[in-house]
Every structure is written in structure tokens, then in C-alpha cells.
Simulated assay, not measured.
Amino acid sequence: MSAETEAQPLAAELVGTLILVFFAVGSAVLAGEFIGSLGIALAFGFTLLALVQLFGPISGAHVNPAVTLGMLLAGRMDVRTAVGYWIAQFIGAAIGAALLFLVAHQVPGLSTHGAFGSNGYGDRSAVGLSLGGAFVFEVLLTFLLVFVYLSVTRGFTARGWDGVPLGLTLAVINLVGIPLTGAGVNPARSFMPALFAVGSAISQVWLFIVAPLVGAAVAVVVHRLVHAQDEEWLSDLSRLRASRARDR
């Protein structure tokens, strides 16, 4: 595999995560009062649907470190590839958040301090959800997203109509999660906006990194229980690849 070919999935993850943060998180920052929770949820869902169509065959359009962790734990990608994805995702989220921060500061009267599309619990939750409740909720939300990724894809890429269930799932997650925690489910999406929001957003962001990773691990376990045939297919594919590598 050439260096150019290896770089393509990383570039896709970087650009994809940048787009997700700028446009989807941007819908909450720049247009939240006009489109409401439903509009923000649809923005996240449609953005992911488009990204899967664009980048799914190249990188899988994970655009989320928790999804990549799920693929790694499920044996669909190696550690080296996963680390590359994580680096690309956080860089993409950082660029997307920086561009969004720049645009937001061109809007008169728009304050980003302590908010800026960041997630939260307690007094930063619209319903006052507790720390424990927020942790369990983020685990469950991320479990659902990663479980759907594992169920509708083969390997770690996505093709064809895979974007439809993935986009709908993210839309539902945000529709339910926005009033409770802001619906993190993505460590890169949560961490970078929190850095620009500063204040209490920074002190709470740890939850929105740890809980999604736990949710991803749970999704892998449950997927192995209910989709055993997929796991057998992946095991056969891994053995075939290893055999071909030895023959070379």
C-alpha cells in the first residue's frame, strides 16, 4: 500500500470531522434559537448521512473516536490505523471549532463563553441532569451509535445506503440528548468546542470523553452477542488476509 493510499482515509477523517463540527455544532451555536432542538438534531443527522456517502468507502466516515474504538475492539482495524484516525479526528475537530469560533465572533451580541455548543450536566444541563445520570446517558447514547455502525457495516468502511441508518441514529440521539447533556457521544466533537468555550465547559468535558469510550466498548460486547455470524465472517476475513500476507 502506497503512502498516498494510506493518507487518504486519514485525510477523509480529518475533513469529515471538521465538517461535522463546523456545520452540525455550528447549527447549535449560530442558529439554535431559530431552528430549535429538532433543527439541530436534523443538522447532525443529515451531516453524518452526507459524510458517509462522501467518505464511507474511503475511511468509513467514523468522524468520532468512539466509533473508531468500537471498530478497533471488534477486530476490524489495527491499533496503528486507529491511532492515525484518532489524531486526524481531533485535528479536524480543532480546525472546525476554530473556524466556527471565528465566524461566531462576527455575529454581534453572540457570546461563546461557557457555551459554544459544548456539553454539560448539572447547571449546564437544560433539565439539570446529575453527573451520574449524564454519564449513564452518554454511555447509552454512544452505545446505540456504535452498535448501529457495527451492525450496518462490514469491516471498518461504509458503503451504499449505510449512511441512512447512521444519519437517522445520530439525529435521534441528538433529538433526545440535546435537552439532557447536549448529546456529546463524540470525544473530538465535545473536547474541541469546550476548549474554546472555556469556563465550566472545560471542567466537565472529561465525562464526554470517558463515557462515549465506555459506550463503544459495551456496543462491541453486545454486538458480538447478537450478531455472532458477522463476527465469524470477520474472523474468516482476518485469517484470509493473514494468509495472503504470509504468502507474499
Rank of each mutant, 00 (worst) to 15 (best):
L18G: 06
V25T: 14
V127C: 06
G128H: 02
F147K: 07
V222T: 04
G75P: 12
F23W: 13
F135W: 05
A216I: 04
F137H: 08
V103W: 14
Q106E: 13
V29N: 06
G56Q: 08
V21S: 07
S2G: 15
V226W: 00
G84N: 09
G117R: 11
L145Q: 04
T17L: 05
V222N: 04
L110K: 09
T153N: 12
A74Y: 12
P108K: 04
G128Y: 01
P212C: 01
L51P: 10
L195A: 09
G132H: 04
V176H: 04
F147R: 10
G182P: 05
L10Y: 15
S59G: 14
F208C: 05
S27L: 03
W233K: 14
I209D: 06
H223Y: 11
A158R: 14
G96A: 08
G109H: 11
A82C: 13
F101D: 05
A211G: 03
P57L: 12
E232D: 14
D230R: 13
R124I: 01
Q229W: 01
L207P: 07
G60C: 09
A74V: 03
R80I: 12
G92V: 05
Y85W: 06
R76K: 15
E232S: 13
L195P: 10
I40Y: 10
E13N: 09
G199I: 00
I19S: 08
V176I: 15
F116E: 01
S243H: 15
P179C: 07
V15Y: 06
W206K: 04
A216V: 09
S130K: 03
L150E: 02
A134H: 01
D247I: 11
A50T: 15
F135T: 03
R76A: 08
V103L: 14
A188F: 03
I19Y: 05
S111E: 14
R189V: 08
A115M: 12
L69I: 12
P65G: 01
E231Q: 14
A194K: 07
F191A: 07
A12T: 03
P108L: 08
L145M: 15
V15P: 10
G199M: 00
V176L: 14
L73K: 06
M77H: 05
A93P: 13
A98D: 00
F196G: 05
L38H: 01
R154Q: 12
S59F: 05
L129P: 03
H223S: 11
T68A: 11
G122E: 01
G114F: 01
G133F: 03
P179W: 04
F101A: 06
I19T: 13
D236P: 01
E6S: 10
A97I: 11
F143T: 02
Q229L: 01
S118H: 05
I95T: 03
D162L: 04
G182A: 08
S203K: 02
V185G: 02
H62R: 10
W161Y: 09
P165I: 00
D247E: 13
A134F: 03
P179G: 10
D236A: 15
F22P: 03
A94E: 02
Q229R: 15
A7N: 15
G177V: 01
